[in-house]
Computed example of a mutant assay.
Amino acid sequence: MTAAEPSRLPAEAEADRAPAPSLRVEAEALLAAAIAAVSGGVVGLIIGLLGVGVRLWGDASLASWAAAGAGLAAAVSSALGYWRARTTDGQEWRRRIASWRYVVSTASVVIAHGALAMIGTVALFAVLSRAFINVELTAFWTTVLAATATGLSGWLSYLSASRMTTQRLTTLLVTFIGIGTLAAMITTSDPMWWTYHFSQLGTFGDMSSFLFNGTLIAGGLLVTTFTLYVSHDLAALGEGPRGIRVVGTALAIMGVMLACVGIFPVNVNMLLHNLSASGMALMFLLLLVGGPWIVRRMPRAYFLASWAFLAGLLVSIALFATGYFGLTAFEIIVFALIFGWLAVFIRFMVVADQPEPRS
């Protein structure tokens, strides 16, 4: 960078890498929203006329119908948006990846958007049911509410998938894992699950277990998609082939191990469950401790942050070993450290080509 060239802000650097907003994307997002809203409105009208979903919450309520419609709208819209985005500037590299990897990445993006739309819709109707207690909806309101839920889901999901970058994928991953896990905690049939361990949430065979295990499996798929973007960005940063290969492989293993934690709950196969969790933790340690030798292009501030995460991990291990807190708290802390580190890693990778601030 020459003296005459102004230094770019991190936000500007991110904008250079992200697909720029375009008239085509905005128009297609509105079209997706319109189609989803009309489809949802028709279903809502039928539900209202038949009188099968006139309550906001409970069995056979509008909430379940709207959540299903919102999830479907988000899934279809995100799939179309993600596929269409391959032709935008800066995203051409996605057309060169193997077909199976593109299918996996698309599936993970679709599942995450669909699940978030469903959970968000359920949460919205839960709040509305507390505000309008015992209200019975007419056909007009079932139509309006269903159309709104599906239309918003289709619109937001199309925009999100159309502008996917490494940083936005990280946000999607962390949000999806966090909301899915919280939803499992809230809906669990055993309010004392936390007295056992975190993985207890996946052992009940009910909706909460489906949410918990499904979140881990879909989250694992998202992490494998994440490796495609990270490898591409590290190459653009000028990182060596060895560093790119090690980081990509470690993150891919973390994704597979995270999915296996959900595939093998402790009540199905405790050995495979524990091996999967341990494998994910080992890859995390590898990237934390080996960072200075693996990713040499990352700034010094990132390595300081990594050592802070390592210190937090060691302190939590010591506190758990001394009985200061239980296994559930320890698992939640480690979980938060792993995904917190991922977010920090991506933030620093985006601005790694910027000059470090003077002390």
Rank of each mutant, 00 (worst) to 15 (best):
F125R: 00
Q167W: 13
T175C: 12
G243Y: 01
P265E: 02
L152R: 03
W193K: 03
A146I: 07
V122W: 11
V135P: 01
L288D: 02
R96A: 13
S78K: 00
F339K: 05
M280N: 10
F125W: 03
G312M: 06
T87E: 15
A336Q: 07
F284Y: 10
T249D: 08
G262R: 00
F264V: 01
L201V: 06
A311H: 06
S78G: 09
S64E: 13
A308I: 13
F204T: 12
T166S: 11
Y82N: 05
E26N: 10
P357C: 06
A343E: 12
A73M: 03
F140G: 11
D190H: 11
L80Y: 05
A70P: 04
V295W: 00
Y82V: 03
L23H: 13
P19Y: 07
R55G: 05
I177E: 01
S77R: 00
Y158I: 05
L62M: 06
S39G: 15
G58S: 09
L272Y: 11
P6T: 12
R55H: 15
G69N: 02
S208M: 02
G151E: 01
W307F: 14
R300N: 13
T188L: 07
N213P: 05
A74I: 02
A37Q: 03
L31K: 06
F309C: 08
V25Q: 09
S160G: 08
V25H: 03
M192P: 00
A139F: 06
I346S: 06
F176T: 04
A252G: 11
W194F: 15
